[in-house]
């Protein structure tokens, strides 16, 4: 007990310093930093472009995942069913949903190579703890696609809890699916469906 406490007191100040440095970064600056970093990495690495799954997964896990709040995403995707789930079920749901999203983006990452991103000016008041960061993805010959990130300010910094692609919210689109599955086979049925989906061979890894 005492050992743990001492450890806490040594680490805490360090952690706080690190956190405040991140927390000062505005949400739009954060999105830009992360997106440009990942795009640069894709453009520079032939393995990523050809879809080397191990490498792609590493980039997603280290660069993207830490910037998302999967628990909130899951609770939003569950809608009113979230409150009827036990804490254990909630954890399982969040874990499986996270795995599903990571796998989805692992298959798609290479597609973003030729994209350029535009960042719209952020409309936000100083004390706000919620913000929507608006971006536009451009590709030659096609209308730009609007991609918005719903962000929240947490003690450890800004995190995204929804991605809205051309008006289609990731969370809302899943809510329709989750709702139907819960209605027909219950929360455990939904967990089972997610587990099954995640266990299947990745469809996009060709």
């Amino acid at each position: 007990m005492i050992r743990i406490r001492t450890w806490c007191w040594t680490v805490l100040p360090l952690a706080l310093v690190a956190c405040s440095a991140i927390a000062q970064e505005a949400p739009d600056a954060m999105v830009k930093r992360v997106a440009e970093d990942v795009l640069a990495q894709i453009r520079a690495d032939k393995d990523l472009q050809s879809g080397n799954q191990a490498k792609v997964k590493l980039v997603i896990e280290t660069k993207l995942v830490p910037n998302f709040d999967f628990l909130r995403m899951t609770s939003l995707a569950m809608g009113r069913n979230w409150r009827t789930a036990t804490p254990e079920q909630q954890k399982q749901l969040a874990d499986e949903f996270r795995t599903l999203l990571v796998r989805t983006y692992s298959g798609a990452l290479a597609n973003y190579r030729d994209n350029t991103m535009d960042y719209k000016p952020l409309r936000m008041n100083p004390g706000d703890t919620e913000a929507i960061v608006r971006t536009e993805v451009r590709r030659s010959g096609q209308a730009p696609v609007q991609i918005d990130y719903s962000m929240e300010k947490l003690p450890e910094g800004w995190k995204a809890y929804d991605v809205i692609v051309a008006g289609v919210s990731l969370v809302t689109n899943y809510r329709d699916e989750f709702n139907d599955t819960v209605k027909s086979s219950g929360i455990d049925g939904l967990i089972a469906a997610l587990v099954k989906k995640n266990a299947a061979a990745p469809a996009a890894a060709k």
């Binding site: 599903l100 798609a108 689109n173 329709d176 699916e177 996009a204």
Partner: peptide, 20 residues
């Protein structure tokens, strides 16, 4: 390929995303 990876029920996923 992204829809295949993302959707629990492909039919519903395509429909909902399209309509939205």
């Amino acid at each position: 390929s992204m829809i295949d990876a993302a959707a629990l029920d492909r039919y519903r996923f395509i429909r909902n995303a399209y309509l939205r």
